[in-house]
Design a protein around this nucleic acid. Structure first.
Lengths: 138, 138
DNA sequence: TTCTGTCTTGAGATATGTTACCATATAATA
DNA sequence: TATTATATGGTAACATATCTCAAGACAGAA
């Protein structure tokens, strides 16, 4: 685990965080790379991955490992849920109350020590509605 | 979308499904490959991927795109939730009632057409408890 | 049966996403 | 500043997933 105190404040880190704070779209590492490169053309993709991972470890940002193969990153660290468009893969926030009780229910029915939960809705965004109709999974 | 009727029942498909039905561990494609290879040593990894994807499309099995970068597969198709061990990555079922109401809540607060949801708990499995302590995310 | 067209497979090539490595550069500190 | 541990950028390596295609297997027609 990375210590917050030992993390140097480099230009790259500042800009990565700034760019992430600008958007609510939960960009992938590669999308962050594209955003940051407009201001720091010589930044390396590895630096972006390294720092996103590091910032997620320290809790500065959130790493979402939701559907789809890529990791996504979110500067909103307060607990909240997400919805993913099955058609285009876009991920948005769902502004609904956090389901407080369900961790306790889960603790009762499993042998795990519960640390948290995440709800991911699947659906069709307004751009993709119309062209597609699929059946609900659960 | 693949038609169920047009899907031939090949030895490979039978064995992939049989092996998947044997376990409750939500194996990755590669783990399925290893399991199946014990009975069909000459099967190709592509065949495993192809057929898992196909069976997921027809609804014979469930494809889980939960935390972690790899896809996992589940022969239990009835709606249910999962818990993932933060330490070893293992995924287990959580036998708790499906939260019926939350799709409607989500529909009200978003512009998406809601198709479903999935809840993923994170925690520490009984094997990993003790060595680690982490703070809850949400 | 044998033929014929279609579906499926296995093997390898390719694509995609991520991490590791290392020489150089740089922020923090004394 | 001079020092030094840490961070960077470029590239290679790796892991996962998908694509391609010739050869094989199968179902239905002849």
């Amino acid at each position: 685990m990375q210590e917050l105190t030992s993390m140097r404040l480099t230009t790259q880190r500042q800009i990565i965080l700034e760019e992430l704070l600008k958007v609510t779209s939960h960009p992938t590492a590669n999308e962050v790379y594209d955003m940051v490169r407009k201001r720091l053309p010589r930044i390396g993709l590895g630096t972006v991955y390294r720092n996103l991972e590091l910032m997620a470890e320290t809790g500065m940002i959130l790493k979402l490992e939701v559907g789809g193969t890529q990791k996504r990153f979110d500067a909103t660290v307060a607990p909240h849920y997400h919805i993913r468009c099955m058609e285009c893969g876009k991920v948005d926030d769902i502004k609904m109350p956090v389901q407080e009780g369900i961790n306790e229910i889960a603790a009762q029915v499993s042998h795990y020590q519960i640390l948290g939960h995440h709800i991911e809705f699947t659906g069709l965004c307004s751009d993709c509605t119309g062209s597609q109709q699929k059946t609900s999974i659960n």
